[in-house]
Write a protein that binds this DNA or RNA. Structure first.
Length: 471
RNA sequence: GCUCCUAUCGUCUAGAGGCCUAGGACGGAGCCCUCUCAAGGCUUAAACCCGGGUUCGAAUCCCGGUAGGAGCGCCA
């Protein structure tokens, strides 16, 4: 049994949120760092909102990021028998009891308390106490089961990130652990699952801190040792407001479409709320080796797309081109370009990576290697494919055509010699070529561009540019 | 309203009482380099929420404000 077992426990009511991804990452890193296990649990007890599509989307996101579970994922809906068994045991032991309050009754209770400026809570009217007379059971009401929370004393959550947090038991009411239809509720399932799965460290969003003392109390009632907790703060949008759809990309999988490399997104995420001195870039091994959960920030952080893109660029620039190639392939096809028959993708990655911060950008700028030009950028053409430029291209084309070898050094030499012979700067020659072959004034160095594009395509495009009528 | 949490450049952060004239990174501005776009190099502007303590000394410790956030469901 490893000393550390963590879990990521999303509820499948939507896509994998970027904040959830970071929580999963921290959970994963903590487990790896301590040579423990990282597990996945799908919290699908909300039958109304949970969908199979969402389950798939979550797996897809986790897969893409490489945060896969060390064991088969646990689905809560498959554990109902177990939950019922535990509830029956608690009923028998007297740590839980039936409550016959109707929803309307509870709503009234809450409204009254709010009006009196009290914290809304269950008043314990069905809570059995020695010598207390319980109300008469109303007919036809399916009772819920409530946990009998201690009335006195305090619960200390020794949070790995936030430090000790103290709650008074008198602040806590008797929460429902089973609904009228007998189905268990979230706070209860979590407790039973964490116990059964042998979770030693619960790493989760800090929107759960207020649930923690109740969960600890239930665990204690069950005679189990509570795990350690680490509540990670949420991720905010650039405007400091909770991240939501109106901020653009919140779903992890959208970041793939935006042109991110998964390892780059992970790197950005790990630095959002955590740091190791001044280091910005971490390989996965470094993350695992250096991750220290006690150094996670206590305050929420804002998602900064500019910096995320910068990190992505760093990865694009240094990654193995062979590793990036399939991603570029994916993006090219996404914009309707079939890379078959063109230059090797890895070679294009190498030529383009410096000037492309995202794969979307790389695909856009590399399209011309694989597809026929769909016209020229007008401004660039007007500037460089004028009469003067076309005359230059006509002459140069002949020289290139006569080249015995079509490789970068030969092309470089030919273009240089041509410019020199004309008494022109290289720019005067390279720019018209660029616009002619790439359709725009942006491309890798001219020798590489022509080499990658190939002899046939280059000469055809030069000819087309020369034949172009003056606008 | 009640409970709990948080607070360093615009953003992510370093800072564990003297090493702070508060460091790094993104972004911004400027310069250099240059066949385009970039990349790279250099320079630069920019922050300790406020008020009290404790201390010889506080960004750091304590208290109080203020501001933000989370939770208060037969949701998770």
């Amino acid at each position: 049994m490893p000393a550390v077992v963590t879990r990521f426990a999303p509820s499948p009511t939507g896509y994998l949120h970027i904040g959830g991804a970071r929580t999963a990452l921290f959970s994963y890193l903590y487990a790896r760092r301590h040579e423990g296990r990282y597990l996945l649990r799908i919290e699908d007890t909300d039958r109304e909102r949970s969908t199979e599509d969402a389950v798939r989307a979550i797996f897809e996101g986790l897969d893409w990021l490489g945060l896969v579970s060390d064991a088969e994922p646990v689905f809560q809906t498959q554990r109902y028998d177990r939950y019922r068994e535990v509830i029956d045991g608690m009923l028998e032991a007297g740590t839980a009891y039936h409550c016959y309050c109707s929803k309307e009754e509870l709503e009234q209770m809450r409204a009254g308390q709010m009006a009196r400026k009290e914290k809304p809570r269950y008043d314990g009217r069905w809570r059995p106490e020695p010598g207390k007379l319980l109300p008469e059971r109303p007919a036809g009401v399916q009772p819920v089961v409530r946990f009998k929370n201690p009335v006195a004393g305090e619960v200390v959550v020794d949070d790995l990130i936030k430090g000790a947090i103290v709650f008074q038991n008198e602040e806590l009411d008797d929460l429902i652990i089973a609904r009228g239809d007998g189905n268990p509720t979230y706070n209860f399932c979590v407790v039973v699952d964490d116990m059964d799965m042998g979770i030693t460290h619960v790493v989760r969003g800090d929107d759960h801190v207020n649930n923690t003392p109740r969960q600890i109390n239930i665990l204690k009632a069950l005679g189990a040792e509570p795990p350690a907790y680490a509540h990670v703060p949420m991720i905010l949008g650039a405007d400091g407001v909770k991240l939501s759809k109106r901020h653009g990309a919140v779903s992890v999988i959208e970041y793939r479409a935006l042109g991110f490399l998964p390892e780059a997104l992970l790197n950005y995420l790990v630095r959002l709320g955590w740091s190791h001195g001044d280091q910005e870039l971490f390989s996965r091994d470094e993350m695992i080796r250096m991750f220290d959960i006690s150094r996670v920030q206590k305050a929420p952080a804002r998602f900064d797309m500019e910096k995320a893109v910068w990190v992505n660029h760093q990865y694009l620039k240094s990654a193995d081109p062979l590793h990036v190639a399939p991603e570029l392939d994916w993006h090219l096809r996404r914009i309707g370009v079939d890379p078959a028959g063109g230059p090797a993708l890895a070679a294009v990655v190498e030529a383009q990576r410096e000037r492309c911060k995202t794969l979307v950008e790389m695909a856009e700028k590399s399209k011309f290697f694989y597809a026929e030009l769909d016209g020229y950028n007008e401004k660039d053409a007007a500037k460089h494919l004028n009469a003067e430029g076309r005359a230059l291209l006509a002459e140069l084309a002949a020289r290139l055509e006569a080249l015995p070898q079509w490789n970068a050094p030969a092309l470089q030499e030919a273009v240089h010699a041509f410019a020199e012979g004309k008494g022109l700067g290289l720019g005067k020659v390279a720019q018209p070529i660029r616009v002619a072959v790439a359709g725009m004034a942006i491309s890798p160095p001219i020798d590489q561009t022509l080499f990658l594009l190939g002899r046939e395509r280059t000469l055809a495009r030069l000819a087309a540019a020369v034949a172009r009528n003056n606008p």
